[in-house]
């Protein structure tokens, strides 16, 4: 089971700012190990963020997103205590979902 994400959501005026830090190797598939064998690519492919049950951001990623990915964005609306849910799925079909409340 991968480590949990860190999700911080705060209201800024009439908007909500969401910052997410995920824990993932994001292996590019370009590197070689000590024996000269290619280390297979292992990376998050899909990310979605929902506010209550409405999707506010969805993303597709390649191997070039940095290890332990970070993303931040803003959406209109959102109030203290509303639920923010972030889900990622990687190329091994491993999945992680975490929740946070807007502070």
């Amino acid at each position: 089971m991968p480590d949990p994400m860190k999700i911080r959501a705060t209201t800024v005026g009439d908007e909500t700012e969401v910052k997410v830090l995920m824990s993932h190797e994001m292996e590019t598939g370009q590197r070689k190990d000590g024996q000269g064998k290619t280390i297979p690519a292992w990376f998050i492919q899909n990310v979605s963020v929902t506010w209550n049950s409405k999707t506010v951001l969805s993303a597709q990623w390649g191997t070039a997103v940095a290890k332990n990915p970070f993303v931040s964005f803003r959406f209109k609306g959102g109030a203290k205590g509303d639920k923010i849910t972030v889900t990622w799925v990687d190329n091994r079909a491993e999945k992680r979902t975490d929740e946070s409340m807007i502070a």
């Binding site: 908007e15 409405k54 999707t55 506010v56 951001l57 969805s58 993303a59 597709q60 990623w61 390649g62 070039a64 997103v65 940095a66 990915p69 970070f70 993303v71 931040s72 964005f73 803003r74 959406f75 209109k76 609306g77």
Partner: peptide, 17 residues
Amino acid sequence: AAVFDILPGTEPTITTR
């Protein structure tokens, strides 16, 4: 590297690494 879908109500501004 990445594609972010900007849904209605979401600001067309993103940061990542």
